[in-house]
Design a protein around this nucleic acid. Sequence first.
RNA 1: GGAGGGAUGGCGGAGCGGUCAAUCGCACCAGACUGUAAAUCUGGCGUCUUCGGACUACGAAGGUUCAAAUCCUUCUCCCUCCA
Length: 417
Amino acid sequence: MSKYKSEFLNVLTERGFIHQMSDAQGLDALFAKETVSAYIGFDPTAPSLHAGSLIQIMMLSWMQKTGHKPVALMGGGTGMVGDPSFKDEARKLMTADTIASNLAGIKRIFSKYITFGDGKTDGVMVNNADWLLPLNYLEFLRDVGQYFSVNRMLSFESVKQRLDREQSLSFLEFNYMILQAYDFVELNKRYGVRLQMGGSDQWGNIINGIDLGHRMATPQLYALTSPLLTTSSGGKMGKTAQGAVWLNAEALPAYDYWQYWRNTEDADVGRFLKLYTFLPMDEIARLEALGGAEINEAKKILATEVTRLCHGDDAAKAAEETARTVFEQGGAGGDLPVVTIPQAELEAGIALIDLLVRVSFASSKGEARRLIQSGGAYVNDAKIEGDTHKCTAGDLGANGAIKISSGKKKHALVRPA
RNA sequence: GGAGGGAUGGCGGAGCGGUCAAUCGCACCAGACUGUAAAUCUGGCGUCUUCGGACUACGAAGGUUCAAAUCCUUCUCCCUCCA
């Protein structure tokens, strides 16, 4: 009944990872026959990856689970160029130092999802700076550049809109796709990589690599892209108004990460369970079928599972427990953000307005004032009216802290120090 | 090098001498309804404030004027076309 012979493609298909593939039959046969190496490239534009990259990480993880070899390519070299695909304007150039420190942060994330090592199906992490930096310009132009037609490159959808909008595309950026194509060929030579995966915006870049492979006589290469993920209401995956949903605990605490997933829209629950957890499909089908308020149970499971993968079992349980206390019992869980203030300040009485700013629920006193005026400020779960309210040591609860809330979802604890 | 066009709040985009802290849309925040969902509706959305106002802002620096985001000069940056 399965559509494919290979477990890998079946899993990816039924879980919704696949947007496009080049030569599905050929790829299927390859996966069914041998241990395949496939890679996905990641740009070191930030010290952590965010939830938008999670789908790619999950694909690599599934590679490993189904007996193949995932290769995570760090774009240390291409990061110095910047991918212009579907971007409105040139990215600011990053220095080599920034790239190096970003890479270090990103590596830690991968080790949570993939086992690295020297075994047959162990993951490998490589940096394209290793082969891109030593390139000799003229040699490269003659060996690789000769195979690229500018006419064709200009026709790619990924740069077309940029050109149509009459925004400049620098020569530097234009080279990005050549370098990425070269990466594919180079990875084939070094690690026998046959498949490149990526987001659907990478399709053009990947195809370029396949073409270059033909011309440079590699074995047949393949492309597989994942859908560009948006939430049902059109938001970009992994982005909130507060910023990206980072995967590093230093950049985003596990509790906040858990909350992000807990607040998934109803319509997305099933899709996300398939993509972002390893729960079996029949279990997901059951959860997905929950209607009305019951779907909240599915959201909690989603949040806990996803958090477990990224931050570990303990952190996931702690986040879940805190959420239960805070939202279902109106208490104050231990995993809430804690802000400390000097004991003396508290005894003298500190204005709620100032506290709201301290815990970052308001970015200015005026904003804090407005929050109170609109009825969204709470101290120990009691709504505060009047923007002159002061908090004192008397507000300290049994846990030795004051619970401050903005609206019904954002909570923080203030502790004297 | 030459000729044009442009730079406004997180983004898009009005305004083109006073009534401009700046229409409007998006985004965002809070409230109502709910299920920590979506949709919808309401209010808010520069900083400070003794709530009277004060201050800072329309690329930068000068100037004209009682008064400038709006006019003039210079500069910086971006885009287009020509060479």
